[in-house]
Design a protein around this nucleic acid. Sequence first.
DNA 1: GGTTGTTGTCATGCT
DNA 2: TTAGCATGACAACAA
Length: 622
Amino acid sequence: MTRLDRSSHSGGGRAKGSRPLNSLLAGHRVAQPPSAPGSRASVQDIDLIDILWRQDIDLGAGREIFDYSHRQKEQDVDKDPQDGAEQEDTWSGEGAEALARNLLVDGETGESFPAQFPADISSITEAVPSESEPPGLQNNLLSPLLTGTDSPFDLEQQWQDLMSIMEMQAMEVNTSANEILYSTPPGDPLSTNYSLAPNTPINQNVSLHQASLGGCSQDFSLFSPEVESLPVASSSTLLPLVPSNSTSLNSTFGSTNLAGLFFPPQLNGTANDTAGPELPDPLGGLLDEAMLDEISLMDLAIEEGFNPVQASQLEEEFDSDSGLSLDSSHSPSSLSSSEGSSSSSSSSSSSSSSSSSSSSSSSASSSFSEEGAVGYSSDSETLDLEEAEGAVGYQPEYSKFCRMSYQDPSQLSCLPYLEHVGHNHTYNMAPSALDSADLPPPSALKKGSKEKQADFLDKQMSRDEHRARAMKIPFTNDKIINLPVEEFNELLSKYQLSEAQLSLIRDIRRRGKNKMAAQNCRKRKLDTILNLERDVEDLQRDKARLLREKVEFLRSLRQMKQKVQSLYQEVFGRLRDENGRPYSPSQYALQYAGDGSVLLIPRTLADQQARRQERKPKDRRK
DNA sequence: GGTTGTTGTCATGCT
DNA sequence: TTAGCATGACAACAA
């Protein structure tokens, strides 16, 4: 009724809400004949429905008696043996490929970073421990590095900063660079003060020209030549430790530009109290505790390629999102041989069971002719045609999702009774039928009575096959489904078919088409998932590589900071005032000027400048 | 008995 | 308008 309703309503289209009614007939999901309340169906239609229902009941009632199994031929033939081999190759070779990819040299290092080398006076300040502090506080050199947030944003920012810094390492240190890095605006009162201001305390009381600088070790050559040859310039209000050129830094650090690290240190606790919290360390955050922890963790994990925790998280996310398991490669179900249900391909019995169909199919192409009235299950034969056209239109790579029973069973094609082995979806078969269908030996079929064979074939038939038979559709479902539209219409025109017959034929065709479409859709979906999985693997490899590089950078950065700290201490410790007394680190600090010279300035000024330097980036962000 | 994978089917939107 | 395709959703079934 519903089917008739639908067809009568839409004439090919599907009426909304017809599904439950459809199920009554199409699905046989309700064990009662359809009532016809308010039906617009004609009496003839109702009779046809009754016929269909009686047919079903006669056939054993439940839809479970029908065997869908040999519809699997469609999927079986859908794959060719090479695909199967390809799958294995792809799958097994994926690891090797991944390895190879993992070894690829990264071409991303050319990434450009903003030249925002943090000319922050606090860096050296933080790098040099206060003399008033116990030696154990040398670790405090990194103390600013060990504090901070571990928010992803900060880490990311730090990472970028680090990258920019490390890029700077590769640059030759020259005056122009120093000017860029350390120059202050012309009108900057601080810079003016540092270099010229006559009213600063240091101008009057402190003069590096007068300061005696002890012999420097070779390691300290970065200052020694110039310092030792410093001309006595009484007019100079400041005493710059002016290197002849700033490349002298390189003698100590190679090509590393650490000039920016030489800024007024905070050498005592008081200075730290006043300016400590506000003094930014451009590198400090890069080595904060969280990051160092991460490094240590990564050191362990990196050997594996990437952080296993992160990998597991990724896996979880990925697995949880898709309703399909990604780990299908290990699915043992591939060929489902154990599930194999087969059907007899004997064509003789089909003629007995459906004379009309056999007679008509004889004139059809070979793909149809042998099918009898076995409905969709003939798709495997149909695919003889379709394969030439690309099967059902979509041929994704049959990756490792073998268990989808899309794997190629064509190797079984030489065994007719195994032809339909695939996934066992004998939904409509009674358990007893399943037993017999499990391995339907042709010999046994031959021995059996015709009646038995007919029963068996009946059980192999799909619902639509049964309906087609009941409605005396004069051609096979294969034709109905697979013929091109023109031929299909031509075929229909050859026969005098009732409205109900035409409706059923259209439904059969629609369902058959949709079934293939659904299969293709599922294949595509799996293929997409596989591609995504590969993408995830690639990204994980990239991430692991970047983390490795990060660890290396941070290590070298830490070493450089330690070096800077020791150098600063050595320089400062050798400075003497006019009376030959060492300067108090609580009152003075070393700072690099914009021109690359090193100045000894009062700590208060250093703190002020540090604060100013700190505000600048913040203002820029706003 | 609950879970998972597979398949068929329907509804719907799009071409 | 019709046919066909693509796809999400659902149900049935088997393992």
